[in-house]
Design a protein around this nucleic acid. Structure first.
Lengths: 110, 110
DNA sequence: TAAGCTTACCTTGACATTCTAGGTATCAAG
DNA sequence: CTTGATACCTAGAATGTCAAGGTAAGCTTA
């Protein structure tokens, strides 16, 4: 099963990133590590998915970027939530729950 | 996510179809209606997604088709699960649960 | 001081899936 | 005989993810 779409369901990456940023500004690499750690590597965040997602979200005004220095003294771009991003997060969480409840309804039928 | 609050997450349509077919052979239109009814229209199955999905699944040997007559006396193509489809269903359910548990872990963090 | 590992970012192109928006045909009901 | 529901089908666009590359700088260790 598969090469594609097995690791992440399309559409969930943004909610994961937004939620991660509620803990405070983070750079991309750290966001990926946090999600992987939290899920015991069930969700693997590929960099080829991560960075394009960050650009999309920035373009849509959900997050803002600023260059800085990482904890390990490397150049890093720190993202933080905007208020639009916070609203988007609320919407996406609600959407996710509605959706997963609905899927469970189908899967749970005897 | 897109304008309709009800679109599917990529990768979930097949598990929904497979599960629906455990109730017995169904034609495409009936599969869509069942999923929509079960979820109170939270999950809307577009025909442009449904029929291509059925072909993919048939090509992969998860389901088999046979022309027949619907309850309302119309020509209809009835699909039924193969044993490969049953195995696929088990795998996809397991995958879905692992995935949704992982997403919840991220979203649930205080 | 060089090699190698890790951190950190970025991009291109392929790929799968879903949606939009059409279309056909049949049957039942008004 | 027109309308609405049933039932199938398809082309093309849009979207998002992944694979697979790449750059560069800091740390470690030999």
């Amino acid at each position: 099963m598969s090469k594609t779409t097995a690791d992440l369901l399309q559409g969930t990456l943004s909610v994961l990133i937004l939620k991660t940023l509620t803990w405070g500004p983070r750079h991309g690499y750290a966001i990926a590590r946090m999600i992987e750690d939290t899920t015991d590597d069930t969700l693997l965040i590929e960099e080829g998915s991560l960075y394009p997602a960050l650009y999309r979200m920035e373009r849509r005004g959900w997050i803002e970027a600023e260059w800085g220095t990482s904890e390990l003294n490397r150049k890093a771009k720190f993202y933080r939530l905007t208020s639009a991003g916070r609203a988007q997060l609320r919407a996406e969480i609600a959407q996710w729950r509605r959706f997963s409840v609905a899927v469970e309804k189908v899967l749970a039928t005897a």
